[in-house]
Design a protein around this nucleic acid. Structure first.
Length: 261
DNA sequence: ACTAATGTTGTAGG
DNA sequence: GCCTACAACATTAG
């Protein structure tokens, strides 16, 4: 479910509810989502105070007075303030006021406590809304299709399948184009399109496809503004040609064969 | 019955 | 190191 705009919306709704709160206790169900020992993690979290909620790409880092509680929502994860318990509840954090509940039917998400940020977070590329054009251009010099490069979290962090397709459509760049072969003006168009689509999606509180909701249980609305993602066969908003779907980097990839040569 | 779905990680191979 | 392809993870929706 969650790419950068969705995770940003979760973080923004989470902050006012949990910053300053103290974790009274933590309970974990099942072995899939939690990285590490449930007993040790629960013991480490009990009594910790929440100082901040940060986002690193698609990762949520809850900064405690010692260490971090790091959450990745995978495809179907939800972090809910005072959420109801269900068969897919994998973690319950009881706070000194209210609670935080993690649920995830597909269980591709992960929760981890550490004294420092884990390596897979530290190894991420820069934020796409903070990276400079110069740095972005260097990072794009890879001999893979530009879509695969945008999905690579070591290049920039937070772009996923929806926003990669939407950014390339807006830039008028074919997703199969080898990134390193793009002229500088094309790279600049991709850069601006990526920033534009992410910013607009954040303004719309993300895309609710599948089961995405923020931490208050609210849906986003950017899915109504998707121009190519999941619009296979529908007319292109620019030229009317049918939107095409191919598989690239093992992901469904949607583009206009007319506008994205 | 089959396919595809917002993601990451690990393996094998070029 | 860089790159591709594939599998795995587990569930639901069309």
């Amino acid at each position: 479910m969650p790419e950068l705009p969705e995770v940003e919306t979760v973080v923004r709704t989470l902050r006012p509810a949990v910053v300053g709160r103290r974790i009274v206790s933590a309970e974990f169900r099942g072995l899939r989502v939690l990285i590490g020992s449930p007993i040790k993690t629960a013991r480490a979290l009990a009594g910790k105070k929440i100082l901040a909620v940060e986002r690193y790409g698609k990762f949520i880092a809850i900064k405690l007075d010692r260490g971090y509680l790091v959450v990745h929502l995978g495809m179907t994860g939800r972090l809910l303030i005072d959420g109801e318990l269900s068969k897919w509840t994998h973690a319950i954090f009881t706070l000194d006021r209210g609670s935080l509940v993690y649920e995830d039917p597909r269980q591709f998400g992960r929760i981890e406590y550490g004294e420092t940020l884990p390596q897979r977070v530290a190894a991420l590329g820069p934020e796409p809304l903070e990276v400079t054009l110069e740095d972005f251009s260097k990072r794009l010099k890879r001999r893979s299709p530009v879509k695969a490069v945008l999905l690579n979290q070591a290049v920039v962090r937070g772009v996923g399948n929806i926003y990669a397709d939407e950014a390339l459509f807006r830039a008028g760049v074919n997703p199969k184009r080898v990134a390193a072969s793009l002229r500088a003006d094309r790279v600049e168009r991709v850069f601006h399109a990526m920033q534009e689509v992410l910013t607009e999606a954040i303004d719309r509180r993300g895309s609710s496809v599948s089961n995405y909701v923020d931490s208050e249980g609210r849906q986003g609305s950017f899915q109504t503004l998707h121009r190519v993602y999941q619009r296979t066969g529908e007319p292109c908003v620019n030229c009317g040609a049918p939107i095409k779907r191919i598989v690239l980097a093992q992901r469904g990839t949607h583009y206009c064969p007319q506008c994205q040569k």
